[in-house]
Every structure is written in C-alpha cells, then in structure tokens.
C-alpha cells in the first residue's frame, strides 16, 4: 500500500525481467544511454559539479570559513566575488562549492549504506522466503508506517545535531525502502523458470544468488537507489536547514539557505543560490535515473 507514493516511480517492473542479463544486455543499455541526450546532459552537469567539489582546493578559491565584516552581503556580480558574499562576508562561489561537498556527502552516504544493507536484507528476505521473509518484512512495515521526513526528523532530533546523527537518521529511513524493493524484485526473480531450474539441480544457495539472482536484481535496485539520492539530497539539506545535521560555520547548502534567510529583503537572488544547488543536483539525479530506467527497460 504505502509503496505507491514512494516506489511507483522508482522501479523497473520486475515482470519485465525475462532472461538472465548478460554482458550484451548491459552493452545495449549503455548504447541507449549514450543516445539519450537529456540523460547525458544531466550526467554531464553532475560530473562537472563533482569535479569542482573534488578539486575545490586547486581552483584558487577563497577560504570558505574566513569572512570579512566590510564585504558583507555583496550582490551577485561583484568584481572578485562573482556570486557575491554571504552575511559574514564570505565568498559565495567558494562556499557553494565547498558546501556541495558536504551536501553531497550527507545526501549520498545514507543511500549508499541503505543500498548495501537494505539490498542485502531484501535479497535475503526474498530468496529465503518463509519465516525469515516474514521477520524482515514485518519490521520494515513498522518503519514504513512513518512519513519519511518525520522519521528522519524524529530520530536525528532525538540524537541531536551533527552530520553523523543526520546520516544515521536518514539511513534508517532509506533502509526499509531498499528492503521492500529488493525483496519484491528478488521474489519475482526467484520464481523465474531458469532460477527454479538452477535451484533444483542442487546448486548452493550462495551460487544461485550470485550467478542467477544478483545480475537480475542489482540493476533494478541500483536504479531505485539513484532515485532515492534525489530525495535524500533534499532531505539532507532540509535537516541542516532546520538546525539538525551540519553545524555552522561549516558550509552546507541547506544550512546556508537558512542563514541567508535574513537577506531575502536585501539580496534576494543571493539568498536563493544555495537552494538552486540542491535543486539542480536533485533534478539531475532524478532525470538521470529516469533515463537509466528507460534504458534498462529493454527486452534484451
């Protein structure tokens, strides 16, 4: 029931998976991706952002923490500060790039952890079936009974501010989602003829999973995870926005957006810049995962 809202958009329909996926299938997916211009543009934008963040210290930027009282809230286009300066006189471009590092880190890490942990639990539940499945899925149901934002806010609120706590809270939100997806994909894969056949020949469970289940399942779970990154980016910055997550003076998009709220009367354009960072990242991840899903939806 609950999955309709969160999941319907993020899943390669398991019934479409008809055959074991071989290298040729992935080559075909790659070719389709290369031909999809929108997806390539999105991936390009993400790549440029990632490169800028990784090589930030080499770009000749300012110190992201060092401000100056006389240079406070300079508008966008000020010579020397192309994107202006923030309420403490720190260079915006510098802080946006360094801020992206933290925003991306806090946004992507929970999904990555959930991908591994939730994926493993979901595949176990789906493959083992029976009691193990029951146990894992009933616990998942409980976490599904919370609206995701509320759950993240409640857990990180109880744990207190801090990057680590925010990541823990968000991981708790995403693990159940990953479990549901991987369980349902695994269950439907398990019942496919050739997997049944492999099981009946007496191959060990681990072998069957590795050779027959994983290649089918991982792709779908991965696409779903990329959709979650977009949600996660918004949530991560949102937590910092309300004072959970990253603490000042560290630059982080959500936190910057919050501290710049006072500037909406004097420098409205400047005040919205960090949000634009979140928006572009989230949008690109969303569209790229749509493109990936479309490319994988071929009966190869």
């Amino acid at each position: 029931m609950t999955e309709i809202a969160t999941v319907s958009s993020g899943l390669v329909a398991p019934r479409r998976i008809l055959k074991p996926r071989r290298a040729s299938y992935w080559r075909a997916v790659g070719r389709r991706l290369l031909r999809d211009r929108v997806t390539m543009v999105c991936l390009g934008i993400l790549a440029v952002m990632a490169l800028a963040m990784i090589f930030a210290p080499l770009l000749g930027l300012y110190d992201p923490l060092q401000g100056s009282m006389i240079r406070r809230l300079k508008p966008v286009g000020t010579p020397g500060h192309i994107l202006g300066t923030d309420e403490l006189g720190r260079d915006m471009l510098t802080r946006l790039i360094y801020g992206g590092r933290l925003s991306w880190f806090v946004g992507i890490t929970p999904v990555a952890i959930a991908f591994v942990v939730g994926g493993a639990l979901g595949i176990t539940a789906g493959y083992a079936g029976g009691r193990i499945n029951m146990a894992i899925m009933r616990i998942t149901d409980v976490f599904y009974a919370f609206p995701s934002v509320l759950l993240a806010v409640a857990i990180s609120g109880a744990l207190g501010p801090g990057i680590g706590n925010a990541i823990i809270a968000m991981t708790m939100v995403f693990i159940p989602m990953m479990i549901r997806i991987s369980e349902s994909v695994t269950t439907s894969t398990r019942n496919l003829d050739y997997v049944e056949a492999a099981r009946s020949t007496g191959a060990s469970a681990l072998t069957v999973v590795r050779v027959h289940v994983l290649p089918n399942v991982l792709g779908s779970i991965f696409v779903y995870a990329t959709t979650l990154v977009s949600v996660s980016m918004i949530l991560a910055s949102g937590l910092s926005f309300i004072g959970l997550g990253v603490k000042p003076p560290e630059p982080e998009w959500g936190l910057m957006l919050n501290t710049l709220r006072t500037a909406i009367y004097t420098q409205p354009l400047l005040a919205t810049l960090p949000g634009l960072g979140i928006f572009v990242t989230s949008l690109c991840f969303n569209m790229a995962s749509d493109g990936l899903r479309a490319a994988m939806d071929v009966r190869a």
């Binding site: 926005f241 959500g254 957006l257 409205p268 949000g275 634009l276 989230s282 969303n286 749509d290």
Partner: peptide
C-alpha cells in the same frame, strides 16, 4: 512532475516569499 518531486520545497517557499511578499 519531475520538477515537482526534485525541487527542495523549503527553497521554493523562499522564492515564493521573495516574489509575492517581498517584491
């Protein structure tokens, strides 16, 4: 639809405030 699910709504709120309240 993609924009709607990708936009950080707290940021959108600020933008709306800037347009309809401040400006």
């Amino acid at each position: 639809a993609v924009g709607g699910v990708s936009v950080p709504h707290y940021w959108l709120g600020m933008v709306l405030v800037i347009i309809f309240s401040v400006t």
